[in-house]
Design a binder for these strands. Structure first.
Lengths: 200, 200
DNA sequence: CCCTTTTTGGAGCGGCCGCATCAGAACATT
DNA sequence: AATGTTCTGATGCGGCCGCTCCAAAAAGGG
């Protein structure tokens, strides 16, 4: 009968921000209290536990990632340019706002496969990204942008590169180092491109 | 005047094993006490702090890594085969004993760049591996195994792949997934090889 | 064998953690 | 305005953390 004084979605975004910056474990309920301007009882009343808060925040985060990074790869005309564009966009995600990498991948590293829910979620996430990349590579091959061989292996190479650049960001690598990692990947993508005879 | 009842090096290896499996933060001094069979006072008397214990253990670990993975790349005849061999050896490191990845990279992810000493150490580590890979690639190019272009970019691609496969291992990826990641990288390495005319 | 020096185990320190409890404030309803 | 319900803030709980302290044991050197 009494409405909440706060907006749940906004609080979730703020909580995610903290988890993202500090890491999940290192973020205490007191930190959340201070940053979100809510007492712990309000938090626990609304979300139940620190874990549940993370889960709810991650759902929103993944939706954002999906819209920004994965969906463009799944569009009907997404080919090699989309794959390259993915790594450009990933560069933005990884370097903006204090270089904290991708939250899901940070979490995978932090948790170390200890929490089943996290393990399942991160595996699903990797799979989704990999599938999207492979899908775009297949289209690129069908269209003749790249050779039709090694599409699977190339998708595996790329998902590894995604994990690598993220963890470098998380580990405090400089922007220059992150850009080198991304450039290395994009250079390889460019070299996959089949050179069509000039003027054809 | 009274000798230690334990062997320091052995204790360091055991401590590293625990830090590796559980993560540094998640390993408590009580865990160490139980696993190493030493009281906390002995540990603190011998090493000073949990951080210092980690540092000492890491020094030994890095020496092992260096001998097993990095040194072969630095040998005079190390070319593209050595680079490929590096990823084979990395596969062993990453999948053996419960798939816990590489300790230094796990630590980089766990710490998130928060501790200066860790940040410096992990950066130095990445740099060392990258330099060794680039060095071997240069030799491979000079020898004509691969094209002479993009050596830098290729080294960056590979160091990203190293980080990626490690963090996947740390995050609880299956052996099959880890092997796919490694195979994707090795496939790309193989494709760099310049095909010499048959029988030449 | 005694004395000195170092190591050892056990108990305990202050501090922080996630979370629960509960009286009272705040609001929609009547 | 009275009512009834939900939300809020303060306080505190048991538990674990890294680390310290100290008496007693262990092993040199003389």
């Amino acid at each position: 009968m009494r409405p909440r004084k706060f907006d749940e979605d906004h609080v979730l975004d703020q909580a995610l921000e903290l988890f993202w910056k500090r890491g999940f474990q290192a973020t205490t309920t007191r930190h959340l209290e201070a940053e979100l301007g809510l007492s712990q009882s309000s938090l626990y009343n609304a979300f139940g536990s620190k874990q549940a808060l993370l889960t709810a925040a991650l759902d929103r985060y993944e939706a954002r990632i999906d819209a920004d990074l994965v969906r463009p790869l799944a569009e009907a005309d997404a080919g090699l340019d989309a794959v390259d564009g993915f790594f450009v966009a990933l560069g933005h995600w990884v370097t903006n706002g204090g270089r904290r990498g991708c939250m899901v991948i940070n979490l995978m590293a932090e948790d170390g496969g200890a929490t089943p829910e996290i393990r399942v979620r991160t595996r699903r996430y990797r799979r989704r990204v990999r599938t999207a990349l492979r899908c775009a590579l297949r289209r690129a091959a069908a269209r003749g942008d790249i050779g039709a061989v090694d599409v699977e292996a190339r998708a595996d190479l790329l998902i590894g590169a995604v994990l690598g650049v993220n963890i470098a960001a998380r580990g405090g690598a400089s922007v220059a180092e992150l850009e080198r990692l991304l450039a290395g990947t994009r250079q390889q993508i460019a070299r996959w491109r089949v050179l069509t005879p000039a003027g054809s």
